[in-house]
Design a protein around this nucleic acid. Structure first.
Lengths: 219, 219, 219, 219
DNA sequence: GATGAATGAGGGTTCATTCAT
DNA sequence: GATGAATGAACCCTCATTCAT
């Protein structure tokens, strides 16, 4: 994306001047981090600009206003996870292995991209009003449900899975297993008096989830 | 909501003046609703005072500041759900029935008290820093884990449940089933192009969750 | 209006603290001056607050926002001129003297209150959108038209005035004579290469207007 | 109107690129409209550039800054009305007909060019500080006063007009008749509860003005 | 226990203007 | 002659909070 070629004649302090694509990207990254950490209401335009090394005015130049910037951050994260999902080739795996892989994927993705969780929570706090206006996200259908349906069908045929499982319900159950644990880790950790984020705890959770899901679907 | 000008002298309409306990309660209720709807960062002291029919100064008189008010709201909701949990007498139910009851309880509670979800999400967004300071919540141990442990033990003995299930992991799984669905209903609804909150959809989810959990634990 | 009594215990820097009526009035006066000098768009909230010796927040506390403050200034000036008009007792004057008095009144008022002219011009620049929402101004009917109608009738009967003159048209003509001269004094002065505001020029204009109007209505 | 993001490369649609004279003229026209509608303080450079289909930078290239652009707009309008005035050949008309024609001309011009009124009001709000620096306007002497002087002289000699009328005062009176009515139409309309801009009302005003002026000057 | 008035810092946003190309 | 990107000051307004009574 970044033209490191002849466009930038001289170094600038922020390194982004006169490189619009880069400026835009830096703002978006800074915004994502800020929104993820403080939520939509708690995010500060000043901090975003500061972290991006950009003039505050540029946020409005590129994104219109705070809410549109939030939407852009959301859309970008959605595009990112969708791209990752596409790489998940469940179709060529044995049904049980496919489910295990999906459990692990959701878990790993949430662990690696905690900002995704808080962005989604923010959007849901605002009743999804940004996403509703998004055209990009509308077009980004998750391939997971289709893949999951196919996996379920194969599992049913082979006698490995019980029948009548709705792929959307299953997807929500699988995602919820990891998402809820990580999203609510502070309150859960406090209540149970446990450190939910130790390496050991994380490993135990992944094992539990795999067993739980695989047990749940077996015939 | 913002006071645009000096209030005309008006008769006390909230009927709470000179009834300190009631004033306090009204403020707390208004704060809970406000925090639940807008999050900690988006909540407005003015709106809370307005809805409570109280003078803004009273918020500070009773609760110190915004964050302490937030904590008070959180604590109150925790006390509420703890009280409800205590009424859940899983010990006298057959193990499978006990689990089904727990699934239903979590689901019904989240449905009936959506503010609990958003309060928890807010607290987790802030890394649980309010709850960490709370003494009240620390003392409010949920009876659920203990009850769950006992149920699991009985189920194992009777041969109904498989062995080695950790009650905390199971509790998180059960809670997550309903919580994630409801907490993320706007984004999930948008992605799947479904109305997740129709009476039918809610019924289907409850059925799925019960089956899913019971299948997951069976031997 | 101002309670100089026991309400203010100690002197404050701005002298207006804890004297809401006075604070409000000072803001309104400062706003009137600012709007008159710079127009609605050019007026600065900071300057108004500064001149009023008040905190900026107080403008919003008392008046809501800039536009409502503008309307309040407008309404106050209207109330002021209406009060002055009421004192004009044209009914007891001989018709010609009555008209002369009206010419002089309009002239003197515009001279003494140049802010009225620029406020009106601002409001007209904005197509009267503030006044349209005003309830106070709607209720402040100018007594002038009625008085003028009566004067015209008496003049017609006595044979001093020609017939068929509409009092509203006449009022606009009379007001316009002085208003236009003063409102446009800078451009007119420049074009004609004359100082329109010298004592001599002002005297000449008043004489011209009186003669002009009286000649225009005579039989 | 604000550019929310980098313009996508688009085909030149305004057809003015590389046609400097046309670009300049389009900017000037857009600026005139903008200043007329919003005043100097309320005018926005962005909107002007947008309406002109020109790059913002061009405004500065051609006109220096906002104030000089305002002056240019003002000068252009002055040049325009001066040109129209030159076409008014009062010298060959009978004195009364000449005055009537002048009344009508002022009225028609203000009606056809409402932007002239608001530009003048803006300039007067700013105490004529732009016009003062203008060399062009200084050179544009209105022929009206001279023509008016001659008309008055002829009228006096023929016994149609009374003596001692100053042509400048008369001009201001005539111009004010129409200007004030139109300039203040929103506030006057509101106060009198009349639609001053209906076809009927406009006709009535023109008739009144003609009669009023002609009566005022007659012997 | 309760009130209306007051505060100052900072919120998001927009301004006229200039830079590099 | 023309462009998109960038700037920093200042805009109006709102925030949580505290004062005096």
């Amino acid at each position: 994306m970044t033209t490191t070629g002849p466009r930038r004649r001289q170094a600038r302090t922020n390194g982004s001047a006169r490189d619009p694509e880069r400026t835009r990207r830096r703002i978006l990254e800074a915004a994502t981090a800020e929104f993820a950490r403080h939520g939509l209401g708690g995010a500060r335009i000043d901090r975003i600009a500061g972290r991006a090394g950009a003039n505050k005015r540029m946020l409005y130049y590129y994104f219109g206003d705070k809410e549109q910037l939030f939407l852009a951050a959301l859309e970008t994260r959605y595009a990112h996870i969708r791209a990752a999902e596409h790489a998940l080739d469940l179709a060529h795996l044995e049904p049980r292995a496919a489910l295990e892989r999906l459990v692990r994927f959701t878990w790993d993705y949430c662990l690696a991209h905690p900002e995704f969780i808080t962005l989604l929570n923010s959007e849901n706090l605002h009743k999804g009003r940004h996403l509703r206006r998004s055209r990009r996200v509308q077009a980004m259908h998750s391939p997971l449900v289709g893949m999951l349906r196919e996996v379920l069908r194969r599992g049913e045929r082979s006698g490995a899975f019980r029948e009548g499982i709705d792929p959307v319900q299953l997807y929500i159950s699988i995602a919820g297993e990891g998402y809820f644990y990580l999203s609510n880790r502070y309150t859960l950790g406090r209540i149970f008096g446990r450190d939910l984020m130790s390496r050991r705890a994380l490993g135990a959770r992944l094992r539990h989830m795999s067993e739980f899901v695989l047990s749940a679907v077996r015939k």
